[in-house]
Design a protein around this nucleic acid. Structure first.
Lengths: 363, 363
DNA sequence: TTGAAAGCGCTAACAA
DNA sequence: TTGTTAGCGCTTTCAA
C-alpha cells in the first residue's frame, strides 16, 4: 500500500474524496454527505449537481472514514469451523445473503474447532467494528471458555455490536448476547423414537466431538428416548469422536471389527452417516436390510445417498438469515432483552435408511 | 449503532482508545503506536509499561482509524457465485486460510452469476479498501462486460489494491490485474482423448452456461480432441445449459427422452455429472456398462458417487491460496508485471465411470 | 528514544 | 436548505 494516505498512485491520479466532489459541485462536503446518505432534505437541483460530480469523478466513499466518523460499518462477521462443511456453508449462505439484503458485507472467518482461535477472531472482528459477530455451531462447555466468551460478548456490546450465538448454548442470562438455536435434544429424541417404533432396541450412537454442546444434547435426547421406553442406554454402544465423513467411515470400520450387538446406527450428523454408510457398504452390509441408519441436519447430500437417509431436518440457511435479522434488529437502548432467543423448528425426515430390525443376527 | 463515535454505552464504559493507553502508561500516543506496530525502536521499559496499560485496559486498535491513517486494511475480498457450491467453497477455503495466515480477514460476497451484482460488489470492496479483490470462476466474455470490469481493475489499482482473476480469462495486457488460472481447454482435451482411447466416438457434452468462458474452453478442448481423431463434432450432441446438480439431472432426463445416439457423456462439471448419473440410474441405465460418464473439477463428492467418477482434477483450494499469495506479493512500483499469471496444473483422474462402449446399442 | 501535531476522509452538531 | 467545524482514533513526519 502507499505510504501516506491518498497520495498520487503510480497509475496516475489519486482517489477522489468527498472534498473533490464538493468542490466540483460547488457545495460543501456536508451537503455531499447528505445527498449520498439520503437521510436529510436536500434541494433537488443541488442533489443533481452533486450526483453528477460523483459520477464524473468516479467517487466512492471511503468506508473506513465513514466508519470512523459514524461508527456504522455495514459489516457483519461470521465465525464457522470450515468453509466446505455443508452444515457451516449453508448457515454462512443464509448469513451472507441476509447481510447483503441489508446492504452489509460479510466477513467470514474459520476457526476449525480451535476455541482460542475463535476468541482471537472475535477480537479481530471487534477491531473491525463489525455490526454483529455470529458464531456458529456447538462449543465445549467449560467454565473458563464460557468466561472468556462472555468477556467478548461484553466487549462487543461496549462498542454497540452484538455477539450472536447460532446453534450454541447460552452464556448465561447476564451476558449480552442474542441467540438462534434449534432443538438438538428434541430432534434426537424424536429420531430415536422413530427407530424404537420400528422395533430397534440396541442403537449404536456414532460420532460427534466428546463434550461438544451439540453432541451432549443429541446424546441426551437419544438417552431420554431409550429410557422413556424403559431401556437402559448401553454405554458401550455410545461411541463419540468427531464430526465429518472420514471420521464416520473410520469409526464404523472400527466398530465392524468389534462385533458389537446393535440393529441400528444413530450417526451424530449426516456426514458421519455418509462415512458410516460407505464403511458398511464396503463390508457387504445392506442398509436398511441388515442395519438401519439415521443422520442429523438434513444436508442436501443426505438424499443423494443410497439409500436416501432418514434424518432430522434443520433449516440451516434460515438459521443464518435469522441470525442476522435479530442481530440487526433495532433494539438498542431499553427494550433490549439480553439473551434474545429465537428457536427454529426441526422435524424428522423419513426416507429409506430405516427398516425394522433384521430377524437374523447380523452377519 | 450508537449515535456519535465512541460514546459511553448502556453497558457501561466506552472502548479504550490509544489516548487512554498513552495516559495510563504516561507516554504519548505516538509511542503507543510504535510499540504496538513494533516497527520502530522503543526503550524496553517504555515498551513494557505500554503493554501493561494495553492489557489493563483491554485495548484493541480501531481497524478503521488505522486504515484511514495508514491505508492498510488487512482485509481481502473474494467474490464467488455461491457459498455452498463445492467449486467455489473450496476456492474460498484456500483464500480464507491463506489470508488468515497473512493476518488478514476475508470478506466473502456472492454474486450468483449476476454480472451487474459482481461489479457492484467490487465497488463495495473498493470502498472497504480491501488489499485485494479476488473474483472466482468463468465470465461471459462480452465487450461491454469486459470494459466495465477493466474499469474496476483500474479503480482498484488507483487505491493500491488489485483485482485478481481466478479461473477467469484475462481482460487484456493493458489492464492491471493478476491471474491464477488452470487449463480448461487442455483438461477437456485430455479427458475427451481418454474417452476416445476407450473406443467412444459419439460423446454427449452436457451442461455449462452457454458462452461462459469456462464452458467455451472446455468445449474447445472437447472439439479439438474429436477433430484430432478426424471426427467432426456433431452439434446435436452438444447441449449447453447450466452448472449444478439439478440441471444435470433435468437435462439428462430430457436427453434420455430424445433417443440420441451416444455411448459416453462428458458433463461440464462434477455436479452436472452427479445429476446426470442419477437420471441415468433412475432410468435403469448402468454406468459405465451402458453409458460412460465423466465430469470436471474433481470435487470430493466425485469419488463418493457410484460408480466413482472419472474426472479432471483441479486444485481448487490451492488456486485460492495462490490467488492471495500473488495478490499480496510485494511488487508495488516498478517490477510489477501487469497480467501476472500463474497457472495451476490439472490432470485426468481415472476412476470407475468409463468403460469401452457397449457392443449392443443402448436400450 | 520520545513527543507534538498534522492529517487520513467522513459525519453530525450547530449556526446561519 | 446549506455551510462551518469539530471530532472519530490512528499513523507518521518533524523536532527535540
Amino acid at each position: 500500500m502507499s505510504p501516506r494516505g491518498n497520495a498520487a498512485q503510480p497509475g496516475g491520479r489519486r482517489t477522489a474524496t468527498i472534498a473533490d466532489v464538493a468542490e466540483q459541485a460547488g457545495v460543501s462536503t456536508a451537503t455531499v454527505s447528505r445527498v449520498l446518505n439520503g437521510d436529510y432534505p436536500v434541494a433537488r437541483a443541488t442533489k443533481e449537481s452533486v450526483l453528477e460530480a460523483v459520477s464524473a469523478l468516479g467517487y466512492t466513499a471511503n468506508a473506513h472514514a465513514r466508519a470512523l466518523a459514524s461508527s456504522a460499518t455495514r459489516t457483519v462477521g461470521i465465525i464457522i469451523n470450515d468453509m466446505v462443511d455443508p452444515f457451516f456453508s449453508y448457515v454462512a449462505r443464509g448469513v451472507e445473503m441476509e447481510a447483503a439484503a441489508a446492504g452489509r458485507l460479510c466477513i467470514v472467518a474459520t476457526a476449525h474447532g480451535d476455541a482460542a482461535r475463535e476468541l482471537d477472531l472475535i477480537d479481530q472482528l471487534r477491531e473491525q467494528r463489525a455490526d454483529a459477530v455470529i458464531v456458529v455451531g456447538g462449543a465445549h462447555d467449560e467454565p473458563a471458555a464460557r468466561r472468556k466468551m462472555a468477556e467478548r460478548a461484553r466487549a462487543l456490546a461496549t462498542i454497540g455490536s452484538v455477539l450472536v450465538l447460532c446453534g450454541r448454548p447460552s452464556l448465561g442470562a447476564d451476558v449480552p448476547t442474542k441467540m438462534v438455536g434449534y432443538d438438538n435434544e428434541g430432534g434426537a429424541f424424536a429420531l430415536t423414537e422413530h427407530l424404537l417404533a420400528q422395533g430397534h432396541r440396541r442403537i449404536l450412537y456414532l460420532g460427534g466431538p466428546h463434550g461438544l454442546s451439540t453432541t451432549v444434547s443429541r446424546l441426551d435426547g437419544y438417552r431420554r428416548a431409550l429410557k422413556s421406553r424403559g431401556i437402559e442406554p448401553d454405554e458401550e454402544l455410545i461411541r463419540e469422536g468427531a464430526f465429518g465423513r472420514s471420521y464416520g467411515h473410520r469409526a464404523m470400520k472400527d466398530v465392524l471389527a468389534l462385533d458389537l450387538d446393535y440393529t441400528a446406527v444413530f450417526a451424530a450428523n449426516d456426514l458421519v452417516a455418509a462415512g458410516a454408510l460407505q464403511a458398511m457398504t464396503d463390508a457387504g452390509l445392506h442398509v436398511p436390510e441388515d442395519v438401519s441408519l439415521v443422520g442429523y441436519d438434513d444436508i442436501p447430500q443426505s438424499f443423494e445417498l443410497k439409500p436416501k437417509l432418514t434424518t432430522v431436518h434443520v433449516p440451516l440457511e434460515e438459521m443464518g438469515r435469522e441470525a442476522v435479522r435479530i442481530a440487526l434488529a433495532d433494539d438498542d437502548g431499553f427494550g433490549r432483552r439480553d439473551g434474545d432467543e429465537t428457536v427454529v423448528g426441526t422435524h424428522v425426515v423419513i426416507r429409506d435408511s430405516v427398516a425394522p430390525p433384521a430377524l437374523v443376527p447380523r452377519a
